[in-house]
Measured scan of single mutants.
Amino acid sequence: GGTTSGLGELPSGWEQRFTPEGRAYFVDHNTRTTTWVDPRRQQ
């Protein structure tokens, strides 16, 4: 941990993952979708 950059926890059902290249993306298990956009930035 320690790399949350002050955004806090992800919404319920979300998970942060990384591509083999090390790029972060976000998985929404509620809708079984993925996005490059941090859901915390859409609030």
Rank of each mutant, 00 (worst) to 15 (best):
G1L: 05
G1S: 14
G1W: 05
G1M: 14
G1V: 12
G2I: 12
G2V: 11
T3I: 06
T3G: 08
T3Q: 10
T4M: 14
T4W: 08
T4D: 15
S5M: 14
S5D: 15
S5Q: 15
G6T: 14
G6M: 13
G6F: 11
L7Y: 12
L7Q: 11
L7R: 09
G8I: 10
G8C: 09
G8F: 09
G8E: 09
E9S: 08
E9V: 10
E9W: 03
L10F: 11
L10S: 02
L10I: 07
L10H: 04
L10G: 01
P11E: 02
P11R: 00
P11G: 02
P11I: 01
S12T: 06
S12I: 08
S12D: 15
G13V: 00
G13F: 03
G13T: 04
G13D: 05
W14R: 01
W14C: 04
W14K: 01
W14S: 02
W14F: 11
E15G: 04
E15D: 11
E15I: 03
E15S: 07
E15C: 04
E15P: 00
E15H: 05
Q16G: 06
Q16P: 06
Q16M: 12
R17V: 13
R17D: 06
F18G: 06
F18C: 13
F18W: 10
F18R: 10
F18Q: 09
F18L: 10
F18S: 10
F18I: 11
F18P: 02
F18T: 12
P20R: 11
P20Y: 04
P20D: 14
P20H: 14
P20M: 11
P20L: 11
P20E: 12
E21Q: 10
E21N: 11
E21K: 07
E21G: 11
E21M: 09
E21T: 09
G22A: 05
G22L: 06
R23K: 15
R23Y: 14
R23L: 14
R23W: 12
R23T: 14
A24W: 05
A24S: 10
A24C: 14
Y25C: 03
Y25G: 01
F26K: 01
F26L: 02
F26W: 12
F26M: 02
D28S: 03
D28G: 00
D28T: 00
D28Y: 01
H29W: 07
H29R: 06
H29I: 10
N30H: 03
N30I: 10
N30P: 02
N30E: 08
N30R: 08
T31M: 07
T31P: 00
R32P: 02
R32I: 05
T33P: 00
T35E: 01
T35R: 01
T35K: 02
W36I: 06
W36G: 04
W36Y: 15
V37K: 10
V37P: 00
V37M: 13
V37E: 08
V37T: 09
V37H: 13
V37R: 07
V37I: 15
D38T: 03
D38S: 04
D38Q: 05
P39A: 01
P39V: 01
P39Q: 01
P39K: 00
P39H: 00
P39M: 00
P39C: 00
R40P: 04
R40H: 04
R40Y: 02
R41I: 09
R41K: 14
R41V: 13
R41L: 14
Q42F: 11
Q42T: 13
Q42N: 13
Q42R: 12
Q43W: 12
Q43Y: 15
